[in-house]
């Protein structure tokens, strides 16, 4: 899909466009900055800023019930906020696609990020969400595309987990 070192945010953006996903809900994360900038600059895709990530699960479900495709983009700490809400798309058998940028794993500096970062994948799996971890930037686009097709075509819940190895650990001025 793309060469090593290429812009994985742009790869996701193109996959979003190609699938007629026209609404992106988010509580922002540093790792999502480039993608959110691309979305904010695009008039065909509506950006919805949330107060907490679980709202995005409700909004995306409501969107699909009304015939529009949406996704939710968040940091791994936001996964914990979504747990009960994830029952909603499952109950309606609605698609649910989450894009999660990971903290609390590769070279994490902040110990407060570690518990939810480490629990994000098992917690999602406990709620019936198929997880697609990605460790290499050149695989992000195709992984997102595959997860999106699974979610929308098979009406299931899926999450793409973008490794902290791809994003880079936040330095907190420690470099």
């Amino acid at each position: 899909m793309s060469s090593p070192g290429s812009n994985w945010s742009l790869d996701i953006f193109r996959a979003i466009e190609a699938r007629n996903i026209t609404l992106v809900c988010t509580v922002p994360d540093g790792g999502l900055t480039n993608l959110l900038d691309l979305i904010a600059a695009d008039e065909k895709i509506r950006l919805v800023t949330l107060s907490t990530e679980e709202e995005g699960i409700g909004i995306a479900t409501g969107c699909w019930l009304g015939g529009r495709r949406a996704i939710i983009a968040m940091q791994s700490s936001g996964v914990g906020n979504c747990i009960n809400a994830l029952g909603l798309p499952l109950a309606y058998r609605a698609p649910c696609l989450m894009l999660v940028t990971m903290r609390g794993q590769w070279a994490e500096f902040n110990p407060w990020q570690v518990p939810m970062g480490q629990a994000a994948k098992p917690a999602l799996e406990a709620m019936g969400v198929r997880c697609f971890p990605v460790e290499r930037p050149e695989e992000v686009g195709e992984t997102f595309a595959a997860a999106a097709d699974l979610a929308f075509n098979s009406r299931t819940s899926a999450a793409v987990l973008v490794s902290q190895r791809i994003i880079g650990a936040k330095g907190f001025g420690q470099k």
Binding site: I57, G58, I59, L65, G66, G67, L88
Partner: peptide, 12 residues
């Protein structure tokens, strides 16, 4: 999630 669901519906 009643209001978020209704918001998604209204935007769709």
């Amino acid at each position: 999630l009643a209001v978020p669901t209704a918001l998604g519906l209204a935007l769709a």
